[in-house]
Nucleic acid binder design. Structure first.
Length: 468
DNA sequence: AGCACA
């Protein structure tokens, strides 16, 4: 029902020091907004790129009279308010202050987040980006990456002022055609501020540059430039080999933790880093080895095999484009085993040591996810084919407080695997289930009560019900 | 061209 007899445009009736602007170009920046409004008074807050079309904005003056001045001026002016040639319509807002201004990308900083629309990563070289943005000041660092939003670049300037000048000048503009491959159509730049202040560039490569450090090593796998598909002898495209494997985990009925993956992939050599993440509704993991050879063996051996019996947690492996993962040293979803343990233990930030360091340690996993086993190592946490765990004895042979392969020069294969698996034998060749060194583990027979068990300890070899 | 955010 009609709530009042007011006309439809009642918003225009009540002056407010907040003005509502519409029909703005979607590229309109805060700076342009301020340019338009500041002749009328002091602006204390703005909010731009509002609405589904990002073509509305709010401006808050310090004083109500200043807002009235602006509205009155344009009400009687023969020249309408304009931004980038578009007529801007100005009214009093129905609110009297701007709240929650500034999405993170609007908070000025010295690092810009640039989204290059309508292109693929290979279309715009980092040199072109550098060229374009260097026009505004010294570009310290550039990192490029592909996300759901498209091809993006982080560009680090000396200060927020320089970054801002680049943003004002380039946001919504296009990279000149002559700098782009012919097949590229439009390529608009969408620019916001990054929350970063100093990018962590590890290598000079086709994806990232540090112009402040010419001696930074060149990433050997990245030097070749934009992903050139390697063509195998059969003429088919082959993904370039890498020391980092990308594992997609299919049919993941059970928890696959960092520890589980570490155990599985350590059978082939030192695992340096692990990261687990969700992608396209599935679970994937990146596993980093020191070298390609180790990764290759792991990939060949594990491909298509299952972590757990019964076809659960089937692994599909490919080479990642990464060569060095940047992961949190110790988190639910990632682990960096190359961090010296001293920092881990001394730091006090880490809630618990890993299981193999101290099997007697208290609960270290979210116990709501796991049925506690008879030992302090939760059943299912370490895949049950690990004979040492089954035996209930000391689980790992690593020296206390050291990480395998890190502080001592033992063979790259963890002891428990070496002992169980004859060198040269392929651990998984006999079975579709990963069970190195145990030809036929007494695992649950396929198809028997895999997981839907209310209560009770899981059968040996069976991970606990996930999601209880 | 018509009022944000969470």
């Amino acid at each position: 029902m009609s709530t009042s007899g007011q006309p439809q445009f009642r918003y225009t009736q009540t002056p407010s020091k907040v003005l509502h602007l519409r029909n703005l170009p979607w590229e309109c920046t805060e700076e342009e907004l301020i340019e338009l409004c500041k002749p009328f008074g002091k602006i204390v807050n703005t909010k731009c790129n509002v609405g589904a079309n990002r073509n509305q904005a709010f401006v808050e003056f310090a004083d109500l009279n200043q807002a009235i001045q602006m509205v009155s001026y344009y009400a009687s002016s023969s020249e309408p308010a304009q931004v980038r040639g578009k007529t801007v319509y100005i009214q009093y807002s129905n609110r009297h202050e701007i709240v929650n201004n500034k999405s993170p990308g609007d908070v000025p900083g010295n690092v810009l987040l640039v989204t290059i629309e309508g292109v693929e990563a290979g279309d715009v070289s980092i040199d072109v980006i550098h060229l374009v943005f260097s026009a505004f000041g010294f570009v310290h660092k550039i990192a490029t990456f592909e996300k759901a939003a498209g091809f993006q670049a982080l560009i680090q300037f000396t200060d927020a002022e320089t970054a801002s000048s680049a943003r004002v000048a380039l946001d919504g503009r296009s990279i000149p055609r002559y700098l782009l491959p012919e097949h590229v159509g439009s390529c608009h730049l969408r620019i916001s501020y990054s929350a970063h202040t100093d990018l962590n560039i590890k290598f000079q490569s086709h994806r990232s540059r540090d112009y402040t450090n010419p001696y930074l090593p060149v990433n050997p796998t990245a030097i070749e430039g934009p992903v050139q598909p390697v063509v195998g002898p059969d003429g088919k495209k082959k993904e370039p080999e890498s020391n980092v494997l990308l594992a997609s985990i299919e049919n993941m009925q059970y928890a696959v933790t960092v520890d589980v993956l570490h155990t599985v992939f350590s059978a082939f050599g030192t695992v340096q880093k692990i990261a687990i993440f969700e992608k396209n509704g599935g679970t994937q993991a990146l596993i980093q080895y020191p070298d390609i050879a180790t990764a290759a063996v792991a990939k060949e051996t594990l491909e298509g095999h299952c972590i757990y019996d019964g076809g659960y947690c089937k692994l599909h492996l490919s080479y990642s484009r990464h060569t060095d993962l940047n992961v949190k040293a110790y988190s639910e979803k990632s682990r960096d085993y190359t961090i010296p343990d001293a920092s881990l233990l001394a730091g006090g930030q880490v809630s618990a040591p890993t299981a193999w360091q101290n099997p007697q340690a208290g609960p270290m996993y979210p116990m709501n996810n796991y049925a506690a086993g008879p030992t302090q190592v939760p059943a299912g946490q370490v895949p049950a084919w690990d004979p040492a765990v089954q035996a209930g004895g000391p689980v790992y042979a690593s020296a206390p407080g050291t990480f395998p392969g890190q502080t001592y020069s033992a063979p790259p294969v963890p002891t428990y695997v070496t002992a169980a698996m004859p060198v040269g034998s392929s651990p998984l060749s006999q079975s579709s289930t990963i069970s190195p060194g145990v030809a036929s583990m007494p695992m649950t027979q396929t198809g028997i009560q895999p997981n839907l068990r209310p209560g009770g300890a899981p059968p040996v070899g069976q991970p606990p019900y996930y999601g209880r």
